[in-house]
Structures are given as C-alpha cells and as structure tokens.
Design a protein around this nucleic acid. Structure first.
Length: 584
RNA sequence: GGCCCCGUAGCUCAAUCGGAUAGAGCACGGGAUUUCUAAUCCCGCGGUUGCAGGUUCGAGUCCUGCCGGGGUCACCA
C-alpha cells in the first residue's frame, strides 16, 4: 500500500478517535485554489453552530503532514509538508509498480471481459472499433489495479445473417474466393452479403408494388425463404451447407485476425455460437421441465417475464430453431463452467441491446443461476455520423480497415520526412492509431459519439498525439540527461516552487486515484481526461522552465518531476492501449 | 404508446458519488522559437447548464411534470 494511503487512513482513524460528529470527505483541491487536498466540512458546520474556523480547527487538530491551511466556507484546503512530497517522489521513482503505476486493490477480482463479438457476415466497422478500444482499455485498467482478466471473443457464426451471405456467394460470386479477387476475406464475404441484400430488397419492392404489405413481402420474398431453408439445413447438419459455412467463416476469421493484430488485440478464449446454441436449447428444455417457461400450441417456447416488467420473450421458434437469446443462455452457462472463479462477467455491447441484456439476466435469475448477478453489461453509445446513423443500405458505414489506413496516411504526412522510411512508417501507424483510439475513448462510454472525420483525425489539442508527444518529450529529455550522467533521483522540493512545478507535482499525485476510479467505473474517459490534463501541465513546465540547464539542486528536482511524469504518462498510454513511439 | 439513455460555449466534450466564480479542445483574434523536439506554450473572445416547479446550508448533478433527440419493445442478430 502506498504510504499516502496510509496517511489518509491515519487521518480517518484520528477523526474516529476524536469523536467528530461527521468525518470530512477528502478530495483533490481544484487547480485555482492553494492546497493539495480539500477536507469538506460542510456536514460538520451545524455541530459547530456555523463557525467554520472552529470546525476546521477540530478537524485539523489530530493531523500530521499538514503545513498550510486555508478555510473557505466549508472547504479546508491543506498543503502537505516537504517531507511528504520527498517521500512521494521517492516511492513514485523507485518502486512505481508498488502503488503508483500499478495497484493491488483488486487482486481478489477475476474478470471475464467479452468483446467485440462480431457477426461473421460483414467486415468490422467504426462501431466495432469503439467496442474494441473500450474492451481493451477496460481490460488493461482492471489488470492495472491488480485483477486477473480473461479476454473473450464470442463469434456470432450462425444464424440467418450467415445464410444470407452464403446465398449471396452462391448466386453472385461463386466460384470466386478472396484470393482470386485479391481481397481481405471479411470484406469479400461482406460483398456477398450486400449483394444478397440488394437482390432481396428488389424482390420485396416488387412484391410491395404488386400490392403486398411490406412486412408480409419481407417474409414472402423467395430469397428470404431460401435463406430460412438454408438455416434449417444448417441446423439439420447438411454436409454441403456446413462445408460452405465453414469455408466462408474461415475467410472472415482470417480478415478479422489481421485487423485484431494491427490493433494489438488478443483473446484468451474464443467462443462460437455454433458451439453454444445447443447448450442454450438444453437450458430451455431444463426451464420447460421446471415449468419456468411454457410451450405455445404452435410449438414455440416462451418465458413470461411480465412480473419483471419485461413482457414475454420467445426462446425457441415454432420450428424448434433457436433465437439469439437461446445461445446467449448457453454461452453464459459455459463461461462460468470454464471459469468458476469469475467474480465478474462483463459484456461490452452497444446500448441498443440494453433490453436484451436485461432479459438475459432475468432469465438466468429465474433459472436460479447464482452467478447471474455477477454479469455486468458495459453498455456504450452508438457512433453516429454528422449526417446521422451509419447505414449499410446507404453505404455510409465507416469501414474499420479503411479508417485505420486513413489515419495512417494522415499521420504519415506530418511525420519527419528525413527519418528512415521504416521508422517513419512505424511512427505514423502509432500516431494515427493513437489519435483514433483516444478519440473513441475520450467520451463517456454511455454517450453517443458523433464521428466527425475532420475532428477525429486531428492531431492537435485534446488528442492522442498530444499525450504521445508529451511522452516523447519526457523520454528524450531523460535520454539527454542520461548522456550527461544524470538520472532522476528523489529530492526534497525546493522551498519556493514555481506555479507550474507545483501544479504538475499535485497532478502526478492523483494518478493512483484516477486508475482506481477509471477501472471501477468501467470508464476509460476518466483516464483519458486525466492524461490530457497531466500532459498539459507537463508541457507548461517543459516549455517555460529549463531542466538540464537549471542549477544543480533545481535540476535534480525537475529531473525527478520529469521522471515521475514519464512513469505516469506511460502507464496511462498503456492503459488506454495507445502506442507510444520513442520519437515523433 | 410503454420502458431506457442523452440534452452544458457556435461545434466536440469535462465538471472529483449534492460543493467553491460551470472548465478544456476545436473554431476565431492576438502573442512567444539564439534555449531539453513549436504535434508546444501564453493571452483574449465565448454560458439563463432544454423549460417549469420541488427537496436544502448549497442543484448542471437528486425528485415531479413537460419539450427535444436517440434506442428498444422481432418466430432479426
């Protein structure tokens, strides 16, 4: 445990012993006020008849390490002693992994984090990128605070959508392959799907023109009937159908894998719905026997969740085939069978499935699964374009691979042309991805993002490259120092600190608290904002105060500041899964 | 229509579980480079926190009712 935790614990204990009517809440002092920590004594004022100075005196009496105090209304801003800061620098520099850049407060936690769970009929798009960035960042955040994390991908490799791309291939693309047309496999299969949808829509339109209701036409269109028949053949185990299915999924997996690798994302375990839907069906049977569910006269199986305010939910179709939630039941069961020690099972899924996830939890609860309450839905908002929602039909879907290429190009042009080509390319990839990832993470996950291409590829201001640049500056400075035989060593802060120095020092102090709240809240945006603010303050020091040229005592202190900043910014970039080049 | 989420500067977002004078970036205007990488820094401009009530020492934050936007309520996934 870092020593300042010990200090806060000591303070709280002292307050307990002092028999205060209320214990003050401790927060970080806002930047425009003098002080490092703020004790909130509003709740105590009543007991002291509104006399803030008396209340403050009572609160401060038992505390050590406090040097300067300012009482403003119910706020008591305290500054900490030089000895305190010396010790902070020592711990952050000498053993950052033991309580500064790494914490152990969640070491009893074991999380499974599922993302991005794509369908296998289309390539990944911008929405998947938000999902991937979120899932990876949350995984890393929890690892940072000491938890064990198992990353899991659930592939939706069966269902009507796959049947559609299979039919698309048969009718419009056979016998072509990704290799024969020179395309990534997932994009090729996506083309098959789009071709199907186009032909299907033409059929529906024709039927509607002939006077049929649209909802009826959608079901009656021959292509849809064919797709359903194909799904039944698949579920019946028809060998030819299965062979094509395997082939097309294989193409898609190869394509996905390339994208995952480019993003540096790896999974510990991959689940396939084709392997869990039967488990789901068995669970539905179990529920039927236990009279938790019921069968309609037409043979379909339902759960009545009106008591939970969720209405009725179909679990098996009239023809006995499974629906989406059926396999989700099976997968959920399997996860806890495979990993019985899980304390949390996290689903990173868009908020359009809020209702679905509520249904899933309600069903698992009804089935008496004790771990149902360990499920956490990390629900995130949609990525929209300035023109509205992305739509396949209108061709406005932003493709993940194309966007990554565009980011790379953009960054490449800004990179020093004098660099060796290989190095320049590596930097461009890091900066391009850094910009995109930061852009996708900087907003509260539950809010919708409006993806403005111009702003997202911006490399200035509140962006990933801003943080990367701060990292590079610090790193290079430390390298330069090292060449002169100088290393960051803990020192006592000088008596008079420049405003920029104090500002940076105080912000550095907050890192562990940020890691904790960002992880616990499943909210990487907290770490992103902090990383920006921290780097802003570092830049101010860097820009206005000499480090290597300063006189030796001052130089030593500033070098220590830079050293701690270097640890901190690196930790933040790692946690956000933003690459950090050594030069830019 | 029922339920869920969102509404803060022209635009994109913050606001430390109800706390201080609501803060950043972009855009716009001005300034800084013989100095550790200017992808930087400094200054300025910009607000009835959608509207109306309520709760209390104190509300962008909590409650109620409206308004606006999105999602969802499939024998789709």
């Amino acid at each position: 445990m870092p020593f300042w935790h010990a200090l806060l614990a000591e303070w709280r204990e002292a307050w307990q012993d002092a028999n205060l009517p209320e214990i003050p809440r401790i927060t970080f002092t806002p930047p425009d006020q003098r002080g490092t920590l703020t004790l909130n004594i509003f709740p105590l004022l009543k007991a002291f008849k509104g006399d803030a100075s008396q209340a403050a005196a009572a609160v401060l009496h038992p505390l050590r390490e406090v040097t300067h105090v300012e009482v403003i209304k119910g706020f008591v801003n305290v500054s900490l002693s030089s000895a305190f800061w010396t010790q902070f620098l020592r711990e952050a520099l000498e053993s950052p992994r033991e309580g500064y850049t790494h914490l152990s407060l969640a070491s009893d936690q074991h999380l499974m984090i599922e993302y991005p769970s794509p369908n296998t009929n289309k390539p990944l798009h911008l929405g998947h990128l938000r999902n991937l960035c979120l899932g990876e960042a949350v995984s890393r955040l929890w690892e940072r605070i000491g938890a064990r994390v198992v990353r899991v991908n659930l592939v939706n490799d069966r269902g009507i959508h796959i049947s559609k791309s299979m039919l698309g291939w048969r009718k419009f693309f056979a016998p072509q392959t990704p290799a024969s047309v020179g395309k990534k496999g997932d994009h090729f299969v996506g083309d098959c799907y789009v071709a199907f949808e186009k032909a299907y829509k033409a059929q529906v339109d024709a039927l509607v023109a002939a006077g049929m209701k649209e909802s009826e036409a959608q079901v009656q269109a021959p292509l849809f009937q064919e797709a359903q028949a194909l799904l039944r053949q698949w579920e019946a185990g028809d060998e030819e159908t299965l062979a094509l299915w395997r082939q097309m999924n294989e193409w898609v997996y190869e394509g996905f894998e390339q994208t995952f690798q480019r993003l540096g994302i790896r999974f510990d375990r991959v689940y396939y719905e084709s392997q869990t839907y039967l488990l789901g069906k068995a669970i539905v049977e179990e529920g039927l026997e236990r009279r938790l569910f019921y069968r309609e006269e037409d043979g379909s199986v339902w759960a009545d969740l009106t008591a939970e305010g969720l209405g009725r939910k179909l679990l098996l179709r009239r023809d006995g085939t499974s629906v989406y939630i059926t396999q989700d039941l099976g997968t959920a069961d399997l996860k806890f069978r495979d990993y019985p020690t899980l304390t949390r099972s996290v689903y990173v899924i868009g908020n359009e499935q809020d209702h679905h996830m509520r249904l899933l939890c309600a069903l698992l609860k009804r089935l008496g699964r004790p771990w149902a309450e360990k499920i956490y839905h990390l629900s995130y908002g949609m990525v929209e374009l300035p023109t509205g929602r992305m739509k396949t039909r209108e061709g406005t879907v932003v493709d993940a691979d194309e966007l990554l290429d565009e980011m790379y190009q953009r960054a490449y042009e800004l990179t020093d042309a004098a660099l060796p080509e290989k190095e320049r390319a590596a930097i461009a990839e890091a900066v391009g991805q850094g910009a995109l990832r930061f852009y996708l993470l900087r907003t509260d996950p539950k809010k919708n993002i409006i993806f403005d291409p111009a702003e997202s590829i911006d490399l200035k201001g509140f962006t990933g490259p801003f943080l990367q640049y701060g990292y590079v500056r610090a790193l290079r400075l430390l390298e330069k120092a090292s060449e002169r035989g100088l290393v960051p060593l803990p020192t006592e802060p000088p008596e008079h600190l420049e405003a920029a120095e104090l500002s940076l020092l105080q912000q550095l102090f907050a890192l562990p608290a940020i890691l904790e709240s960002s992880a616990m809240g499943f909210d990487p945006a907290i770490a992103a904002h902090y990383g920006y603010e921290l780097t802003r303050r570092f830049n101010e020091v860097y820009q206005t105060l000499p480090v290597l040229q300063a006189e030796s005592v001052l130089r030593q202190f500033r070098l220590a500041l830079v050293g701690v900043y270097h640890h901190a910014i690196r930790a933040l970039l790692e946690v956000l899964a933003i690459p950090f080049p050594a030069r830019m």
